[in-house]
Amino acid sequence: MSVAELVCQYCSHRNAGNPAQCGHCGAPLPAVHRLSSLTGHPEQVERVVAGAERAAAATESVVAGAENAVAGAEKLAAQQYPRWQWGAAIAAVVATVVGLGFTVVRSCSTPLASMPDMGIEQALPGQLRAAASCQRVDSTTENCVVPAADPLLAGGITGGKDLTLSVALDPPQRRADTVRNWRTAGGTVLADGVVFIAISPTATLRYANTLVGLRVETGSFNGRAAAQTFMARAGLTP
């Protein structure tokens, strides 16, 4: 069959010339034959068609080869690395990631009990910290003094005397014992929750923050009202 004789793909009707549609059923004819009528070189079009067919065959061969290679690789992996080994490897990776995350979280966390390394007085409220002069007794305790002339003691609430304070940061295992001992020691309890505040029978102020471990015990005031006045001025409130 020459290029000029076109066969319809729908009804197999043979058409003469270079029509765009089948003369029998009106269906469109292949574009490659219409190209021949435009170029005027049907032999070149035939070579193009033959080359395209060879390229298509080569492509199919390459695809088939790739599929065979993939199948072979899967079989090889299945033979050398059983499914349980893949599962174990994934579980090991997950465990490693979780362990690293836990380590990072712990390394980024600073326990409150380590605050003594920064200076125990740093845990005090700002007003009291600014007024007090402190000296370390041991790794968890400091003795502090507020001068009698300081505004925190205005009004003679200590009888014109300096106020001494014992300031400590208790570890978690000692905090409950401190509060329990103060609770049973008598006096007036002003707060009994996360923050415990009491005024003893001798008008000393007892303050404990069980969340951070801060413990403050003062010298005597001129009565309970004077102790409460200092508590408010110094920021030692619930």
Rank of each mutant, 00 (worst) to 15 (best):
residue 178 T to P: 01
residue 84 W to D: 10
residue 63 V to N: 05
residue 86 W to N: 12
residue 6 L to I: 14
residue 179 V to W: 09
residue 5 E to H: 12
residue 189 V to G: 14
residue 144 C to S: 01
residue 73 A to I: 08
residue 148 A to L: 13
residue 7 V to P: 03
residue 176 A to H: 07
residue 202 T to E: 13
residue 152 L to Q: 01
residue 109 S to V: 05
residue 140 T to P: 01
residue 53 E to S: 10
residue 187 G to M: 09
residue 61 S to W: 09
residue 234 A to L: 11
residue 192 D to P: 14
residue 10 Y to R: 15
residue 218 T to E: 05
residue 132 A to R: 03
residue 38 L to G: 07
residue 156 G to H: 04
residue 3 V to M: 15
residue 230 F to Q: 00
residue 94 V to M: 11
residue 175 R to Y: 02
residue 211 L to A: 10
residue 187 G to F: 05
residue 170 D to W: 04
residue 141 T to Q: 11
residue 233 R to Y: 08
residue 42 P to C: 04
residue 203 A to W: 12
residue 173 Q to P: 07
residue 193 G to Q: 15
residue 72 G to R: 06
residue 74 E to N: 12
residue 1 M to L: 14
residue 148 A to F: 02
residue 123 A to V: 05
residue 10 Y to M: 05
residue 229 T to C: 08
residue 205 L to P: 08
residue 229 T to V: 12
residue 33 H to K: 09
residue 202 T to H: 13
residue 83 R to A: 15
residue 173 Q to L: 06
residue 70 V to M: 07
residue 36 S to I: 07
residue 131 A to H: 02
residue 134 C to G: 07
residue 115 M to E: 11
residue 172 P to H: 07
residue 198 A to Q: 12
residue 178 T to H: 09
residue 38 L to M: 08
residue 69 A to R: 04
residue 126 G to A: 09
residue 21 Q to G: 10
residue 158 T to E: 01
residue 57 A to C: 08
residue 42 P to R: 10
residue 16 A to E: 10
